[in-house]
Design a protein around this nucleic acid. Sequence first.
DNA 1: AATTAATAGTTGCACTTGCAACCAAGTCAA
DNA 2: TTGACTTGGTTGCAAGTGCAACTATTAATT
Lengths: 153, 153
Amino acid sequence: MTDPDPDFDLERFLPYMLNQAAEAVGRGFQAIYRERYGMTRTQWRVMANLGKFGAMTARDICRISHVEKTKVSRAVAALEQAGLLARAPSERDGRVEILSLTDKGQVVFEDLGQHALSYDASLRAQLGAAEADMLHGLLQRLRALVPPATAED
Amino acid sequence: MTDPDPDFDLERFLPYMLNQAAEAVGRGFQAIYRERYGMTRTQWRVMANLGKFGAMTARDICRISHVEKTKVSRAVAALEQAGLLARAPSERDGRVEILSLTDKGQVVFEDLGQHALSYDASLRAQLGAAEADMLHGLLQRLRALVPPATAED
DNA sequence: AATTAATAGTTGCACTTGCAACCAAGTCAA
DNA sequence: TTGACTTGGTTGCAAGTGCAACTATTAATT
């Protein structure tokens, strides 16, 4: 005889806890790129990738950062509008556009990267270095557990 | 001499990792309440609270589940529409509405609660029991680290 | 009792997102 | 080459969301 609902509790439900923690922590950093540059999270991520890895196509950003292509497409448009990012046609493939940060974009990236580092450092400090590393590992495993959105599109 | 941007890497940035893991894990369970009942995450959460704690006001749900009141308001409207939830005026306070699951809502809650439990169990199994507990503890600490949205509104 | 402030809940608006449909450029096969 | 298929990227539309403004009711001040 299977107990119909043994003891379901949102507070012990991993997806819920994950989401709560992500929202709480995300809000903290969002305030920074939002107030400083009126940026969206996706825009910030696109910049973070271009800043870290240099010029690449939208497609690459999708693959690397696990963001859907339509989100990237719109973020790129907005960043270009704001003069933070430039597009250049590829010579090998007419569909593709090579994306890169403008000088202004580079400056912004460095500023935000700086803030990101210190925000992250503060979180890790409050958590404890060992726990933070463990958390990081667990999060990576979790992400890998569930297949990504549209098959890594 | 402070290094301008020592080594910023999205993949090591806790807010990013948290968000990625939450999205991945969330997608997995979202598929269930979505396909089965066309529900939204907020709607599911409202139901989860009413199912767990019984009748309460929208305000209580806000406090308990850390969801903003406008989200709750709309979720309640939709759930009522779907016949899963009922509102009753309070006798003590004319502003308040006592919310509760209908019989139909109770059935749905039990079904989803069941699925939630097994989804959670599967995640924990894949992670390992000890690691899952540790993760849960870390997530709680993280949530507490950053103050909630609009001061617990 | 009369004002004023606070609280529960809803609504309008602007914006981000997801999904499907779409366009254009490349690839593959016969 | 021609046609079928794939791939990079954009766009239209229907939601979901955040924020500020708003209504209605209750609490506090005087």
